[in-house]
């Protein structure tokens, strides 16, 4: 059973604001899913190599030749806040007033 404390910790890691009700429901739902999943932890997997990629392919490498970048206007067009050709954000060090 996932505790409320664990839910809050994971939500903080994932930068998700959850309401109290959401966090409570999340604890119940995740616990039930994890309970199902936990069955694989009983399997004998000693000496089994983990699979991160289904194919054993080798990464193709790209020649170091520049290609055109996107026009800045196209990038900034989608930005929630534009300032001086850049993407505006709250300063990392600053707290709300």
């Amino acid at each position: 059973m996932l505790s409320r404390h664990e839910v809050d910790h994971v939500a903080a890691l994932a930068r998700l604001a959850l309401t109290d009700a959401e966090a409570e429901r999340m604890a119940v739902e995740l616990s039930s899913i994890l309970e199902h999943i936990d069955r694989i932890r009983a399997l004998d997997l000693d000496g089994v190599a983990p699979t991160a990629h289904v194919s054993d392919a080798t990464a193709p490498l790209r020649p170091d030749v520049p290609v055109p970048s996107l026009p800045r206007e196209a990038l900034l067009a989608a930005a929630p806040e534009v300032a001086d050709g850049g993407f505006g954000v709250p300063s990392p060090g600053a707290s709300a007033q």
């Binding site: 050709g85 850049g86 505006g88 709250p90 990392p92 600053a94 007033q97």
Partner: peptide, 9 residues
């Protein structure tokens, strides 16, 4: 504004 920053990628 000391509370704002901009990002240059």
């Amino acid at each position: 504004d000391a509370r704002r920053s901009i990002v240059d990628f």
